[in-house]
Design a binder for these strands. Structure first.
Length: 357
DNA sequence: AACCCGTGGAT
DNA sequence: TATCCAAGGGT
């Protein structure tokens, strides 16, 4: 459903810029930043992540890695530790790979849209954000904010998470883009969506664009934008055996095509269903390390973590080994090194509940 | 194209 | 409590 009213489009672009100049008070550490490295860093951190959640991570990364060279030369483990808790860990992996790629090629951040887009972890949105903010190139960003604003204002019923909807949003956003000040326009669009045209309870009464907004006029604020995807939640049960021997503990880095890649964990017993404590204690791994009825075996309370489409529930079982053993892919590491390794959120819930390991 | 990948705040 | 969803990208 293409939008073909030129007057309304001009009204939109003019009002968005006017709102930005007169009313936009939103402040963030990376605003007005012109260093493409720092802009890139902020954009990767902010992918599907709230500004309030990402800001502290951004500050820590910039502080620890002031240039792309610093990041490129850092050790994987150190960078993942700094990313720990932020989620979507493929972002961290791609961030490091791209930093090393840039550093290897002279350390100069790419300047062409196509070259920025070619970086791992950089898609349509992020490439447009970088080249518009850093170099003022005319590429329109389309994020959740922009899609919502456009769907509501222009009355677009095409699902914004489908191929047709994305295509339509990109062409419309590019058409509306102020080609003289693309960086400011893009910033205006996102800030307007985040602070005025919010997902729930948008501030229509004080909106500068209210006189020509389709959704407001037709009472479709809560119906737009349209999405087609529904997330399904699957349950998983993870029981962790924390096997210590002297001053060390057995851990492992997750590498399977699954959640939490590149994060560490203890000895995992996963089940497709909830296990009762007797069932759990019957497990071969438990019986192997805690033969007989072992009164020293400590079972924690139940922990649970909700991911975007999975819910992980489980417990932690502490057992002390009397001799060093070979356990599959798990390695024995000193307890004091635990704090330097990135663990899953589920495990960190448990670790934070302990005084010492 | 459909599905997968985290975490936390708001309602 | 359940649901939504946030400066998306990869496969």
């Amino acid at each position: 459903m293409p939008v073909n009213n030129k007057t309304v489009k001009q009204y939109f672009s003019q009002k968005i810029v006017e709102w930005h100049k007169k009313h936009n008070k939103r402040k963030m550490p990376w605003k007005e930043e012109k260093d493409p490295y720092k802009i890139w860093l902020s954009e990767i951190i902010l992918q599907q992540t709230r500004v309030e959640q990402g800001t502290a991570y951004y500050n820590r990364f910039v502080n620890q890695y002031p240039t792309v060279k610093h990041l490129a030369e850092a050790k994987d483990e150190e960078v993942f530790k700094l990313w720990e808790g932020l989620g979507y860990y493929a972002r961290c992996k791609n961030l490091l790979a791209s930093a090393r790629f840039i550093n290897k090629n002279g350390g100069i951040f790419p300047q062409k849209y196509e070259d920025v887009l070619a970086l791992k972890g950089v898609g349509n949105y992020t490439a447009a954000a970088i080249v518009s903010f850093a170099y003022n190139q005319p590429y329109a960003v389309v994020d959740g904010n922009v899609s919502r604003v456009l769907a509501r204002f222009f009355g677009i019923k095409t699902a914004i998470d489908g191929t047709a909807g994305k295509k339509l949003m990109h062409s419309l956003a590019h058409e509306l883009l102020n080609k003289k000040q693309p960086g400011k326009f893009n910033q205006a669009m996102m800030d307007f969506g985040a602070t005025i045209c919010k997902p729930k309870l948008p501030l229509c009464a004080s909106c500068l664009l209210q006189s020509k907004c389709f959704a407001l006029k037709h009472h479709k604020i809560n119906e737009l934008p349209v999405k087609e995807k529904k997330t399904t939640l699957t349950n998983r049960w993870m029981y962790y055996l924390i096997a210590t021997y002297k001053n060390g503990v057995y851990i492992h880095k997750r590498t399977a095509k699954d959640i939490w890649q590149n994060l560490h964990e203890f000895i995992l017993i996963e089940s497709g269903k909830k296990l009762s404590e007797p069932q759990l204690l019957q497990h071969p791994l438990i019986k192997k390390f805690a033969p007989g009825s072992n009164p020293a075996l400590k079972v924690s309370k139940e922990f649970s973590q909700k991911l975007s489409h999975q819910r992980v529930t489980g417990k932690f079982i502490q057992v002390t080994l009397l001799k060093k053993t070979t356990i599959g892919d798990y390695e024995w590491v000193p307890k004091k090194s635990i704090k330097d390794k990135a663990f899953t959120g589920f495990i960190n819930q448990y670790l934070k509940s302990l005084k010492t390991l």
